[in-house]
Amino acid sequence: MTENPILAPLLEAVERYFTLMYDNDVSHFDRVFAPSAQLHGFRDAELRILLASDYRKMLASTPSPKSKCAPCLQEVLLVDLASPTQAVVKVRVRIDTLQYLDYLSYHRIHDAWLITAKSFHVERRY
């Protein structure tokens, strides 16, 4: 399945997302999220809406799951390629004490798959 010339680079982009969620190394942020990306989801019964720039600041100011030796859970559940330049990827990822179910909208921008929208759901608290 990863022999598809479109799919392999997309899955590499998903791996970059997983790495960023675990190590909070924002020096790689621009290789994961488009500058115009928005994040939406409910957390603590409130709809949160974040711009990519705000999310970057949040990651930079928060201790990473890696620094806390938190368990790592990262699963790709669905890949839906709409075209050679657009896809949706459903993932499950644990970030410290929260397990999320994320829908990541990707667009291929200047030959790089970047997240342009993230819809998240807190699936479980540890």
Score class of each variant (00 low, 15 high):
residue 7 L to D: 03
residue 112 A to H: 12
residue 5 P to G: 06
residue 89 V to P: 00
residue 76 V to Q: 03
residue 117 A to Q: 11
residue 44 D to H: 15
residue 96 D to P: 03
residue 111 D to W: 06
residue 8 A to L: 15
residue 23 D to K: 05
residue 121 H to D: 05
residue 59 L to Y: 06
residue 120 F to A: 02
residue 73 L to N: 05
residue 12 E to W: 06
residue 71 P to N: 11
residue 15 E to Y: 06
residue 39 L to C: 06
residue 72 C to S: 13
residue 77 L to I: 07
residue 32 V to P: 00
residue 19 T to Y: 06
residue 49 I to L: 08
residue 103 Y to E: 08
residue 57 K to W: 04
residue 21 M to Q: 11
residue 75 E to D: 09
residue 109 I to M: 09
residue 50 L to V: 06
residue 113 W to M: 04
residue 98 L to H: 10
residue 41 G to F: 06
residue 58 M to I: 08
residue 29 F to V: 11
residue 81 L to Y: 03
residue 112 A to C: 11
residue 123 E to M: 14
residue 78 L to Y: 06
residue 78 L to T: 14
residue 31 R to H: 13
residue 113 W to F: 07
residue 40 H to C: 07
residue 59 L to N: 05
residue 107 H to T: 08
residue 76 V to F: 02
residue 80 D to Q: 12
residue 22 Y to L: 01
residue 43 R to K: 14
residue 33 F to Y: 13
residue 56 R to A: 01
residue 125 R to N: 13
residue 117 A to I: 00
residue 98 L to E: 07
residue 97 T to E: 15
residue 64 S to I: 01
residue 59 L to A: 04
residue 90 K to H: 12
residue 36 S to Q: 15
residue 61 S to F: 00
residue 29 F to W: 11
residue 27 S to P: 01
residue 3 E to V: 11
residue 97 T to K: 14
residue 2 T to V: 13
residue 102 D to E: 10
residue 87 A to W: 04
residue 80 D to N: 13
residue 60 A to I: 05
residue 90 K to E: 15
residue 71 P to E: 11
residue 22 Y to K: 02
residue 115 I to Q: 04
residue 74 Q to C: 08
residue 60 A to E: 12
residue 8 A to Y: 10
residue 39 L to R: 03
residue 47 L to Q: 08
residue 81 L to G: 05
residue 53 S to G: 08
residue 73 L to C: 07
residue 52 A to T: 01
residue 92 R to K: 15
residue 49 I to E: 06
residue 71 P to A: 13
residue 90 K to V: 09
residue 35 P to Y: 11
residue 113 W to H: 05
residue 29 F to E: 09
residue 36 S to I: 13
residue 15 E to S: 10
residue 115 I to G: 00
residue 11 L to Q: 12
residue 52 A to H: 00
residue 6 I to R: 02
residue 9 P to Q: 09
residue 109 I to K: 07
residue 54 D to M: 11
residue 39 L to M: 14
residue 25 D to P: 02
residue 66 K to H: 12
residue 118 K to L: 03
residue 56 R to T: 01
residue 105 S to I: 05
residue 124 R to D: 13
